[in-house]
Design a protein around this nucleic acid. Structure first.
Lengths: 142, 142
DNA sequence: TTCGGAATAGGAATGGTTACTGATCGGAGA
DNA sequence: TCTCCGATCAGTAACCATTCCTATTCCGAA
């Protein structure tokens, strides 16, 4: 993890009052290592490789803390457990309905949409998630 | 249900090969009656009022058939069961993170976004769902 | 070093959803 | 109209992601 990122994360922990424990750090490392959009179970398995004593519940709790302080992001799909993501910049992901792989869709401007949403609802908008499903190139052929 | 809608639904059933049974019709009526974004459980309770023998599983199966043939739409939220919707026109919903109420956000143009998505991914896009969460006006004050 | 609150491991419980099975329905053809 | 067969259904058990619970451990402030 780059030191800039690490400093930022430390700062977010400090401000939130949560403590940056070794388990939470391990979850962050696992998210980085997974490089994709791992489920809590995926993260758990990676963390377990280095520390076999971690509990799945701890991973869930860590992920929820990390999400709360704005370090990770989660997405809910149909027919798939929740997937987590270190990248907090708003971005688009697409999931293959057949094989389940998740990829990022680059180059789509989202700011205008968010603006329009805020303008058109009396709600205080907290979170906008765009979930795209389709068939990936290889499943498309098959 | 307007006769135009009903004709359209009948046609979609005919083309799909599924049969429009009384239970599936009841689920459609319930979706219309619920006027909002009911969960499968909500739909089940409404259907049960008129036919106490329906099984929850039947409601789930009906909803999945209806979704498959394009008559209903579903959305997956965090901290909430899947919610279903008769309105198949692409539209935006926002859910209050505190009280759970779901409302529609009118007046946001989505076609351009969909076009951009299709243009920027090699996937065959099947479905784009936008999930917005926030605080509704009353929860905002409290 | 001590203390108290936060965090954790381990496992049980929950809740939404799906799967299974035998009974029932409904529509195509006689 | 009657028969038959595959689709659908009711009822219930199973599943699985996630949360909850409790005793133990950790960590940081004093």
């Amino acid at each position: 993890m780059s030191s800039v990122l690490e400093r930022d994360i430390r700062e977010k922990f400090r401000r939130s009052g949560y403590t940056l424990t070794s388990q939470r750090r391990a979850v962050l490392e696992a998210l980085k290592e997974a490089r994709g959009h791992p489920s809590a179970e995926d993260v758990y398995l990676i963390v377990k490789r280095k520390n076999p004593r971690v509990a799945l519940g701890t991973v869930y709790q860590a992920l929820s803390v990390l999400e709360e302080i704005g370090v990770v992001d989660s997405k809910h799909w149909s027919e798939s457990p929740t997937r987590y993501d270190l990248n907090v910049e708003p971005h688009l992901d697409i999931r293959c309905a057949r094989c389940g792989v998740v990829s990022e869709i680059p180059g789509v401007e989202l700011e205008e949409l968010e603006e329009n949403i805020r303008y058109n609802t009396p709600y205080e908008v907290k979170r906008t998630t765009i979930v795209v499903e389709g068939l990936c190139p290889s499943c498309r052929e098959a």
